[in-house]
Structure formats: structure tokens, C-alpha cells
Design a protein around this nucleic acid. Sequence first.
DNA 1: GTAACGCCGTGACAAGATTCACAGCATCAT
DNA 2: ATGATGCTGTGAATCTTGTCACGGCGTTAC
Lengths: 219, 219
Amino acid sequence: MLDQFRMSERTVGRLGVYRRHLYHLATEGVNSVYSHQLALAAGVTAAQVRRDLMVVGSNGSSTRGYDVRSLLTRLEAFLSGPAHQNVALVGVGILGRAILAYCTSRSGHLAILAAFDSDPDKVGRVIQGCRCHAMAEMPDVAAQGGIRTALLAVPAPEAQVVADQLVSAGIRGIVNFAPVHLRVPPFVHVENVDIMISLEKVAFFARSGIAGEEVLEEV
Amino acid sequence: MLDQFRMSERTVGRLGVYRRHLYHLATEGVNSVYSHQLALAAGVTAAQVRRDLMVVGSNGSSTRGYDVRSLLTRLEAFLSGPAHQNVALVGVGILGRAILAYCTSRSGHLAILAAFDSDPDKVGRVIQGCRCHAMAEMPDVAAQGGIRTALLAVPAPEAQVVADQLVSAGIRGIVNFAPVHLRVPPFVHVENVDIMISLEKVAFFARSGIAGEEVLEEV
DNA sequence: GTAACGCCGTGACAAGATTCACAGCATCAT
DNA sequence: ATGATGCTGTGAATCTTGTCACGGCGTTAC
């Protein structure tokens, strides 16, 4: 719990997946779950699940597995911390709107509190239930809302400039949808969501699979 | 080419990033580039770049670095193969439309040839320049268009069922935007793009106040 | 009561990814 | 020439990540 500093990024991602599945289980009234069931739902091995859960201080029983409610609480505490966290969306283009719709439809520990765009036509309007501010208001809104995390969905050429603005407005984590590498200070965490790269990767392996089938297929 | 079967997924992703940057350089008339320049643009180390480029058969010179045009050609050949590849989009909700807009605005080696949706109101319409078909037409369209890769942007509860349909329609690679783990045969490659998990990860590290990404020292 | 079972927690191990470090080479300055 | 420079390509070392295997312990069956 203490050393969140040395947490592996991948482990954090998987913990999020477990949490989501546990949430499902909880709403369905399930109250205990085995590591191999979580593993199946998350697409990893049971050993991996158990190893990951060590960081939140495991409380599994050998007979019933993990108590869903209790584990969910622990994961929430570990991942989200005590307080509700607010997030900003920057760039209200078509992708930005999709993200807004996607996030607001989902529940609670993370909420998009404000949106920002440089287009004067959008400023002042409420889009997908979220007020759109001018970029200049960023520092104030971020400070007032305690926003430390931003979703960046602006066109690639603007991404770096806007990222710099975000950092000076106090943002410490950025989910970057623009297809460029952002240069930020070391205390800012950037996660790239690069749809085209993902697509190219999948296309690559889908193509390789052709040869795989033709040439040799084991197992 | 060589054994693309054993290629690391991460390496393929980085090669895509290099390719994109090389494309930029080429359009700007730059005709040679050093590994450390590519590294800066991609957010990795120079050694990593050189190591990655080994798989496409490096041709760097010690004095001018890499020839942009030549390296770009090699990367294109390696990543995209000889033929143009077609892709399908399944699920034309707001996210699907954003993806359509995002991809069609970008150029060439990968094109979204067809869209699919279960909503009868959308079927037959042309959205973002792409014709929307009924799900039932999937196998035919995929076969005719030689589509082996799909972008899956349907609601989570439907994702698994649709994925099964895709696989039986001959799809061998899926970019999955739904927040669920898809169970597919081993010859199908799935890449998850999970916006909520990415956001949670970033929020976690932003809260921890730790460095996520190293800033590489310049020039 | 006790033997057998199945699962968790974890140390040890293996596999994989990245970085280091240096040979080899073309170029340039002197 | 000849030494210095600065880059690439790559084996080896290091660091990271995932897997294995087994002790321990409730529970259940008999």
C-alpha cells in the first residue's frame, strides 16, 4: 500500500480490470470468487491474479476464494484513494464527445467535471451534460475542482502546446489520444491511447496469421 | 518476411510509431535521421530504436544515420505487407463514428471499407463516408473485401456475441473497445483499447504523485 | 478423528524486454 | 596520413515481468 511508487503500470491496469469484474459480481449478488474465475474474466492466469492481489493485502480464504465485497472495497481504496477524483476533458471534437458519452454513462469514482476547447462556438455550451470552458479558464477550473487528471483529445499538431498548458495548470496525469509523443516533466504521467497504432498492430498480427495457418499450426 | 510469428507486440507498436514519424520527416523533405532523433520523437531510448530496427534489416550508416525514404519503405513492407488492407468497423454508435472520422481522415495503408450495426435505422445509410451494413451481411462483405481485421465498438454486453460472429466471418484480428475480455480462438489476435482502465491508471499515478514517464534528455 | 481435497500466499525460477558497452566503420580536422 | 569523432549493429548484462510449485490451512467426506 505504501509503495505505490514502485507499482508496475501493468499491475495497476489489471487491478482495474479485476475491480470492474468484482463490481459486476457484486451487483449480481455473487459474494465470493476464486482466483481462477477472476483470471478467466480478465484473460490472465490464476497465479497472476493472486500475485497482483498481494499488493492490496490479500484476504482470500482457501475454501471460498475471495470475498467479493471486501476485495472490491480494498481495490477501490487502493486504486481510487479516499476521495472522489475529478477529470477534465480537453478537446471537444467528435472523439472528445465520444469519450464524454462513454465516461459519463459509467459510474462514479471518476467523473469528468469540465470540458475545454479552443473553439469559441463550443465554449459556454453544455455538451453531453458537461460544460465547455475556454482554455484560458483551465487553471482556475482545475484548481477549484481539484482536477489532476486530463483526457487530451485535441488534434495532433496542438497536442504538445495544450499538454504544456495542462501541466502548468497543475495536471499531473494525461491520457493522450493524439498520435504524438508528449514531452512532459518527469512528475507527470502520460498514457497514450493510440488507435491507429493499435489497429496497425492488430492488422499486422492478423496478416501474420495467414502465413501461420498455411505454413504450420501447432497445439 | 522473417518470423513475424515471434515478433514482440511491443516492438510492432514501436515500429508503427517510427513509421509514422518517418512519414512526417519524408513529407518535410528530411532525408536522413539518427536513432536518437527517432528515439526522441517516439519517447524511447536510442538503443531501443536500433534494436527494434534490427528486425527489418537495418541499413543505417554511421555518418548520416538512417535514410528516411529507404527505412520508411522497409517499415511499410514489414508492417503492412505488399497489399492494401481493409478493415471493418462494427458498432456505429458515437464511439464508432468517432473512430470512423479518426481513421478516414488518416491516409492509406489501412482503410475502413465497411461498417456494421444491428440498428435497422443505421443500416443502408452512409456515415462518415462509410456504408453501414446489417450484421448478417458481415461474412459476405468480409469475404469480398478481403477483410481480416475489425474494430469492435459495440456495447459491452454484446461484445462477446459479436466477436464470435466476427471470427466465424473470417476476421483474424480485433481491436476491442468494449470493456470486457473477449474469448476467441488462439489464431485470433485481440487488442484491447480500454479507455476507462487507461484513465484509472493515469488517475492512480497522478494521485501517487510519482513519475510515470522519463523525459529523455535532449539532443 | 483423520484423511483427502482445493485453493491461497509466496519464494524460487524462467522468460522476456531493455539497457549497456564496445567493435567496426565512415568522415572530418589537422 | 593519422588521430579523433560519432554513429550503427549487436553480444552480454541487467532489469522487469510472469509462471511454477509447494507449504499451509480451512472444509468436507467418511
